[in-house]
Amino acid sequence: MLAKTLLALALTVGVASTVNAEALTFGTAVNDSSVTAVSTILATPDAYVGKQVTIKGVVTNVCEKRGCWMTVKSDQRFQELFIKVRDGDMVFPMSARGSEAIVTGKLTAIPLSLEQSRDYLADEAKKQGKAFDVASVTEPVNFYQLAPSGVKILE
């Protein structure tokens, strides 16, 4: 009888702690009152480079080695924004995959070489199931990522 009571108590505490789980926070507070859609940023990224922005979306991937980056899904299909910190500044847990995140930080542009641009655009087309002609890329492009100052992962 005592074992059944203890088991029932343990299950009750486990369920209650899951329901009342708090958000994981990293860095400074996020500005969740001013969220910009990832699709809006990616439509005209140069307008946001160097500016502080806040995004919200589902975490689709996390760095398995150091937790130093993650990707956040856009409100548009096949779009993600890469979130990157210096190794050790923030360590995003693998358990964040599938959770909603709010991220505040500065958007940066990383210039790619022509070869890197072709590889990157070919990979993006493959993800979308689209045909891609590498020869159609005649100029290098930028890769955009968000350098976060604050992250909140909602569990």
Results as ranks from 00 to 15, higher is better:
residue 13 V to P: 01
residue 60 T to Y: 01
residue 27 G to L: 03
residue 17 S to N: 13
residue 26 F to I: 02
residue 19 V to Q: 09
residue 14 G to L: 13
residue 11 L to Y: 08
residue 65 K to A: 14
residue 51 K to H: 04
residue 15 V to F: 14
residue 14 G to V: 05
residue 42 L to R: 03
residue 7 L to N: 14
residue 39 S to I: 06
residue 19 V to H: 10
residue 23 A to M: 11
residue 48 Y to D: 04
residue 23 A to T: 14
residue 41 I to Y: 01
residue 62 V to E: 05
residue 38 V to Y: 04
residue 47 A to E: 12
residue 20 N to I: 15
residue 46 D to E: 12
residue 44 T to P: 00
residue 25 T to A: 06
residue 46 D to P: 01
residue 66 R to A: 11
residue 53 V to I: 13
residue 67 G to P: 09
residue 16 A to T: 12
residue 22 E to W: 00
residue 26 F to E: 02
residue 59 V to P: 11
residue 59 V to A: 10
residue 33 S to G: 13
residue 14 G to S: 15
residue 24 L to H: 10
residue 50 G to M: 01
residue 42 L to M: 09
residue 45 P to N: 04
residue 29 A to M: 10
residue 63 C to M: 10
residue 30 V to D: 06
residue 8 A to C: 03
residue 46 D to Y: 05
residue 39 S to G: 07
residue 19 V to K: 05
residue 42 L to K: 03
residue 65 K to I: 12
residue 45 P to Q: 07
residue 34 S to A: 13
residue 51 K to M: 02
residue 66 R to H: 14
residue 44 T to L: 02
residue 65 K to H: 15
residue 60 T to M: 10
residue 29 A to E: 13
residue 34 S to L: 01
residue 52 Q to K: 14
residue 19 V to D: 01
residue 61 N to H: 08
residue 28 T to M: 07
residue 9 L to Y: 14
residue 6 L to G: 05
residue 15 V to R: 09
residue 28 T to G: 12
residue 21 A to D: 08
residue 22 E to N: 06
residue 45 P to A: 04
residue 37 A to K: 04
residue 39 S to C: 04
residue 50 G to E: 05
residue 36 T to Q: 02
residue 59 V to S: 11
residue 65 K to N: 14
residue 31 N to R: 00
residue 49 V to P: 06
residue 60 T to N: 15
residue 15 V to K: 09
residue 8 A to G: 11
residue 29 A to P: 09
residue 46 D to M: 07
residue 46 D to V: 02
residue 15 V to Y: 13
residue 27 G to Q: 06
residue 30 V to L: 03
residue 37 A to H: 02
residue 29 A to F: 05
residue 58 V to N: 12
residue 46 D to I: 05
residue 45 P to I: 02
residue 42 L to H: 08
residue 34 S to T: 02
residue 58 V to M: 10
residue 11 L to E: 10
residue 20 N to D: 13
residue 43 A to E: 06
residue 40 T to N: 09
residue 40 T to R: 04
residue 40 T to Y: 00
residue 29 A to V: 08
residue 63 C to H: 12
residue 61 N to D: 11
residue 67 G to E: 03
residue 24 L to K: 09
residue 24 L to D: 09
residue 44 T to N: 13
residue 34 S to N: 11
residue 43 A to P: 02
residue 30 V to M: 03
residue 31 N to D: 08
residue 48 Y to T: 02
residue 17 S to V: 15
residue 10 A to T: 14
residue 20 N to P: 00
residue 6 L to I: 15
residue 61 N to G: 12
residue 6 L to T: 13
residue 31 N to F: 02
residue 46 D to S: 08
residue 48 Y to G: 01
residue 9 L to E: 14
residue 53 V to L: 07
